[in-house]
Design a protein around this nucleic acid. Structure first.
Length: 204
DNA sequence: CGACCGATCGTCT
DNA sequence: GACGATCGGTCGA
């Protein structure tokens, strides 16, 4: 039996969001809504570095009712609607008033695959089930109504089950879909597990 | 394959 | 009134 522990505030309150995004690879994201448990191992993340990052919703200190939760302490969920269809799940990091966040772009399904199939309307488990941020939220049942949810709660949390990914199996790349961010679009703020079939976009 | 396109709506200008 | 931190289907090479 390996050691399993829920990630706490000390993990999320770290000041280096890029490092946290990398550390989240291999951790397990669990949701429990209405008694239904679904979980998956995180295999792809992106860091959004708040006020200095043109790709971030909080760039230049932009603070609105939508982005308000990012200014809270690390360890909260930031969920927002993209393209009117997709609910994207982010983890708020750093201290209060520092709006850093990590977008979870892909997980590898573990528990509750039946529930995931039901939620996504897919018939068979496949690599597209939890590939890409829209699909992750859909499969795990995360919606904008969960924005602000505390990751110490039983509804949404991340655990470390002792699984480790070796350094040479972690790849860094520019983020996806942020071409509007100018030079910041080139930052190597995306991390994923080399060769994992659930990783979205180009895996080179 | 890759390129293109429609869906769909809250948020910000 | 325009526009996304997207997805999946379709079309053509």
């Amino acid at each position: 039996m390996q050691k399993i522990k829920k990630l706490g505030y000390s993990f999320y309150s770290g000041t280096d969001v890029v490092k946290i995004a990398r550390s989240l690879l291999g951790k397990i994201l669990i949701t429990q809504f209405n008694g239904i448990v679904t979980s998956g191992r995180i295999v792809e993340t992106e860091a959004y570095e708040g006020v200095t990052d043109r790709a971030s919703h909080a760039y230049n200190g932009r603070r609105t009712s939508r982005t308000e939760i990012m200014f809270d302490r690390g360890g909260k969920a930031y969920v927002y609607l993209c393209y009117g269809i997709h609910h994207l799940f982010n983890i708020v990091t750093n201290k209060k008033e520092v709006p850093h966040a990590v977008l979870v772009r892909a997980v590898e399904p573990l528990e509750g695959i039946d529930a995931m199939l039901k939620r996504t309307g897919k018939k068979k488990p496949g690599f597209t089930l939890t590939r890409g941020p829209g699909n992750v939220s859909k499969a795990l049942g995360i919606a904008t109504s969960h924005c602000g949810c505390d990751l110490q709660s039983k509804e949404i949390c991340v655990i470390d089950d002792g699984f480790r990914i070796s350094k040479n199996n972690i790849v860094a790349s520019p983020r996806i879909g942020v071409d509007y961010a100018g030079e910041d679009a080139e930052l190597m703020y995306r991390f994923f597990v080399k060769g994992n079939k659930y990783v979205s976009g180009k895996t080179a």
